[in-house]
Amino acid sequence: MTETPATGPLLQPAQGLHEFAPAKVNLWLEVTGRRDDGYHLLDSLVVFGEVGDWLEACPAESFSLEINGPFAAPLRQGADNLVVRAVKAFCATTGLRPGFRLKLTKNLPVAAGLGGGSADAAAALRLLERLQGLQLPEETRQALALELGADVPVCLEGRATHMQGIGEQLTTLSAFPRLHLLLVNPGVPVSTGAIFHQLAPPWTEPKEAPRIETDPETLLGMLHSRRNDLEAPACALAPEITRVLTALRNTQDCALARMSGSGASCFALYCSSTARDQAASRLRQDHPEWWIA
Score class of each variant (00 low, 15 high):
6 A>S: 14
8 G>R: 11
9 P>C: 14
9 P>W: 12
11 L>E: 06
13 P>H: 13
19 E>R: 14
23 A>W: 14
23 A>S: 14
24 K>V: 08
25 V>F: 06
26 N>I: 03
29 L>V: 04
30 E>A: 05
31 V>E: 04
31 V>F: 10
32 T>M: 00
32 T>I: 06
33 G>K: 04
34 R>S: 03
42 L>S: 01
48 F>W: 09
49 G>A: 15
51 V>S: 04
53 D>A: 00
54 W>R: 03
62 S>R: 14
64 S>P: 00
67 I>Y: 06
69 G>Y: 00
74 P>K: 00
77 Q>Y: 01
79 A>Q: 12
80 D>N: 04
81 N>Q: 10
82 L>M: 03
84 V>I: 15
85 R>L: 06
86 A>E: 06
87 V>N: 02
92 A>V: 04
92 A>E: 15
93 T>C: 14
95 G>L: 04
98 P>K: 08
98 P>I: 09
99 G>H: 11
101 R>A: 14
105 T>E: 13
106 K>V: 09
106 K>P: 13
106 K>A: 10
110 V>T: 14
110 V>Q: 07
112 A>T: 10
113 G>L: 02
115 G>V: 07
119 A>L: 01
121 A>W: 00
123 A>Q: 01
134 L>H: 10
142 Q>E: 12
144 L>K: 05
145 A>T: 00
146 L>T: 00
148 L>R: 02
148 L>Y: 02
150 A>W: 00
151 D>I: 07
151 D>E: 13
152 V>T: 08
153 P>V: 11
153 P>T: 11
154 V>G: 08
156 L>S: 08
158 G>R: 12
158 G>A: 12
162 H>I: 14
166 I>C: 08
167 G>I: 13
167 G>P: 11
168 E>Q: 08
170 L>F: 05
173 L>M: 09
179 L>M: 05
182 L>M: 09
183 L>F: 05
184 V>T: 01
186 P>Y: 01
187 G>L: 06
193 G>Y: 01
195 I>Q: 05
197 H>A: 15
199 L>E: 05
201 P>I: 11
201 P>R: 07
204 T>S: 15
204 T>V: 07
206 P>E: 08
208 E>P: 13
210 P>M: 15
214 T>P: 00
227 R>P: 03
227 R>N: 11
227 R>I: 06
230 L>N: 02
234 A>C: 07
235 C>V: 15
235 C>I: 15
238 A>Y: 11
238 A>F: 04
246 T>E: 10
254 C>T: 12
256 L>G: 01
258 R>F: 10
259 M>D: 03
263 G>Q: 01
263 G>N: 03
263 G>K: 05
265 S>H: 03
270 Y>N: 11
272 S>P: 10
272 S>D: 07
274 T>I: 07
275 A>E: 12
275 A>W: 06
277 D>T: 04
281 S>M: 04
281 S>F: 05
284 R>E: 13
286 D>K: 11
286 D>A: 15
287 H>G: 13
288 P>V: 08
293 A>Q: 14
